[in-house]
Computed example of a mutant assay.
Amino acid sequence: MVVPSHPHPADGPVRAGIPEHGRIPRYYAVKVRLLELIGELGEGATLPTERELSERYDVSRASIRQAVSELVLEGKLRRRQGSGTFVAPPKLVQRLSLGSYTESLRQEGLEPARTLITLEHRPADPGLAGELQLVPGEDVIHLERVLLADGERIGLESTYLVSSRFPALMDVFDPEESLYACLRDQLGVVFEGAEERVETVLATPREALLIGTNPALPMLLVHRVSWEPGGKPFERVRSLFRGDRLSFSTRL
Rank of each mutant, 00 (worst) to 15 (best):
20 E>H: 14
231 G>I: 00
222 V>A: 05
212 G>R: 05
87 V>T: 10
14 V>A: 13
188 G>V: 13
219 M>W: 04
91 K>S: 05
73 L>G: 08
138 E>W: 02
250 T>W: 13
162 V>W: 03
39 G>R: 09
246 L>Y: 08
129 A>I: 03
56 R>I: 00
115 T>H: 12
251 R>C: 00
109 G>K: 14
24 I>S: 04
7 P>C: 08
238 R>C: 07
165 R>I: 05
150 D>P: 01
109 G>E: 15
110 L>A: 09
113 A>D: 15
39 G>S: 06
35 L>G: 05
214 N>T: 04
68 V>G: 02
177 E>Y: 05
81 Q>Y: 13
239 S>K: 08
99 G>K: 02
140 V>W: 06
74 E>H: 01
195 E>H: 04
138 E>A: 15
181 A>M: 02
197 R>H: 09
71 L>E: 05
108 E>R: 15
234 F>Q: 02
245 R>N: 01
116 L>F: 05
35 L>R: 14
161 L>F: 04
231 G>H: 00
146 V>G: 05
138 E>D: 15
233 P>E: 03
128 L>P: 11
46 T>V: 12
126 P>E: 12
73 L>N: 11
206 R>I: 02
158 S>E: 13
226 S>F: 05
23 R>W: 07
8 H>A: 06
97 S>W: 01
245 R>S: 09
245 R>Q: 13
125 D>R: 09
204 T>E: 13
157 E>A: 15
47 L>G: 06
95 R>H: 07
164 S>A: 14
71 L>M: 10
250 T>V: 10
20 E>A: 15
58 D>Y: 02
57 Y>Q: 12
70 E>H: 10
182 C>H: 01
188 G>C: 10
128 L>C: 09
34 L>R: 07
45 A>F: 03
235 E>T: 02
52 E>P: 11
70 E>Y: 08
76 K>D: 08
218 P>W: 14
63 S>K: 03
133 Q>H: 08
39 G>N: 07
173 F>H: 15
88 A>R: 11
232 K>L: 07
229 P>W: 02
60 S>Y: 01
89 P>G: 06
124 A>S: 12
62 A>F: 03
52 E>F: 01
176 E>Q: 14
162 V>T: 12
71 L>K: 05
77 L>N: 06
117 I>Q: 11
